[in-house]
Write a protein that binds this DNA or RNA. Structure first.
Lengths: 283, 283
DNA sequence: AAAATAAACGTAGTATAATTACAGTTTAAT
DNA sequence: ATTAAACTGTAATTATACTACGTTTATTTT
């Protein structure tokens, strides 16, 4: 795929003049993509057709097509890979690495989401009398965020950080309630217990967690995200970001399902917030 | 940098014919890079010069240069463009759209982060006697998350959801304290007041907010993220995700700066968590 | 509401760039 | 040493992109 690699690899097979062209391109590819075939020929001390033949040898249609391939290779090949932060990274390195690996994780998560389950869960949420969001530790802020989102929808939504409050809340559940439990590993003991309590009280339990975990086993529905665990010490938990995005997906599905009248209501909530804000003009 | 993103963002400024060109390109960018200006013009039902003008409007030298930029954007794995959810999207459409636009926003955010400021803020955080994270509404869960992260570092870190508690906490600040305020718009009145109180008490105030906002004006340091406001009703606030990622960046910078001894300590905290979890084998 | 002005758009011509055909030159093999 | 094959460059051809200018359409002003 990467044409620069291809050039280096095929270099031996090139003719004398073609090698000159290869040298020039490898030496300064950034210049090459902005040059015409004439200037590149001059730079390499060869004729224009030679450059053209050089391009064809690399299985491209011609010079413009070659430039396209080259440009793509220069666009840092695969930017969204999970590059790990290491001890000697400066601010600009670790900033980019973290953003990039977060994006990489999101891409993995996107591909692993089971849309059918998403749809089913949205269904359940729209019909629920009460919705609870619980998570421990790092996942508690995700649950917190879910509260914020769903609260705007004017539905009874519950969130507790405290385990005991969570337990008590679940004990009062009915079959019309939905409990969403968030845990990356799915091995947090207290959360597994919460799932059991909720199910004992006939609530529908949805887990945003790993597919083959103790928590998953206790859930009616599992939304699993194939985000790898953070093995690296420096690496942030990208799973939270994926979880949050999934919450966004659920909230969006919820809005869409509720229909027009509901959306007008949502707009009113947004407008109400204006009062607590500075307007654009008075800054 | 990403030209596809640029097109979607500038679309409003385009003329009628230029919009046609934009549509065609966004609909099928892979075809566009392999077309001549003539064929692209025909596909868009406009004249060749219009395509040319379209390219110039995007700050490229002309059509070939535009194609180069486009090719580079497409090379970045997948073209993550902020496609908006609409009323008739099914579960698989809105799921993908949300994941993709979240990634697109992260990419925009990544490019807009001022690394020098990040570095400076990390500096301040490592030297702080007390770190506070405050945010209102949707941003409060981001602050909550920051608490979780920094709490593991065994530094005095504070987080309140309640405005009054936030105020009181800021009144007790000293010049050795850092207050991090999170707000997408930077127009939340109460948070601007918090900034004023904190500064009045000599604390260092860091804003994770929009660059030209009332809040930004009250901060000593501003980490601004160029994530566009959510104009669309269905669209989630991608800004939160970007803010969270930025928190990750700060936390990582913090860890790196603190050095080896500190990292050993962090590992101990992680190990301690094991006790509250099911092990991999007993599921 | 009409006239004036500016912006947008397309046609035709021009310039530039890329490709092809061909011929001279080198290289390698018999 | 001769011949064939591959290599390379010149010149012509074709494709592609760009510019200048005039017409149409929209916008503003009176």
């Amino acid at each position: 795929m990467n044409i620069l690699e291809k050039i280096t690899r095929q270099k031996a097979d090139f003719s004398k003049s073609e090698k000159k062209v290869a040298e020039v391109i490898l030496a300064n590819p950034q210049v090459a993509i902005h040059s015409s075939i004439a200037t590149l020929a001059k730079m390499s001390n060869v004729s224009e057709p030679t450059v053209n033949r050089f391009c064809r040898r690399l299985d491209t249609k011609g010079y413009p097509d070659f430039k396209l391939h080259l440009a793509q290779s220069l666009a840092n090949g695969t930017p969204y890979v999970n590059r790990h932060v290491d001890e000697y990274d400066g601010p600009s390195e670790y900033t980019n690495k973290i953003f990039e690996s977060t994006m990489a994780s999101l891409e993995v998560a996107r591909q692993s989401v089971d849309v059918a389950t998403v749809n089913r869960v949205v269904d359940l949420l729209t019909q629920a009398k009460k919705i609870s969001f619980f998570g421990m530790g790092a996942s508690s802020s995700v649950a917190h965020d879910a509260l914020n989102k769903f609260f705007r929808f004017n539905v009874p939504v519950v969130y507790f950080e405290d385990t005991l409050m969570q337990r008590m809340s679940c004990m009062n559940c009915t079959e019309e309630d939905v409990v969403v439990l968030i845990s990356h590993t799915g091995r947090t003991k207290s959360l597994v217990e919460i799932a059991q309590i909720a199910r004992a009280n006939d609530a529908v339990v949805v887990g945003i967690t790993s597919g083959d975990s103790p928590l998953a086993k206790e859930c009616n529905y599992v939304l699993s995200l194939a985000v790898p665990e953070d093995t690296d010490l420096y690496m942030p938990m990208a799973s939270r970001i994926a979880q949050l995005t999934l919450i966004d997906v659920l909230a969006t599905g919820f809005t869409l399902r509720r229909g027009t009248k509901f959306r007008e209501n949502l707009k009113r909530v947004k407008d109400t917030l204006r009062g607590s804000r500075f307007t654009k003009t008075d800054n």
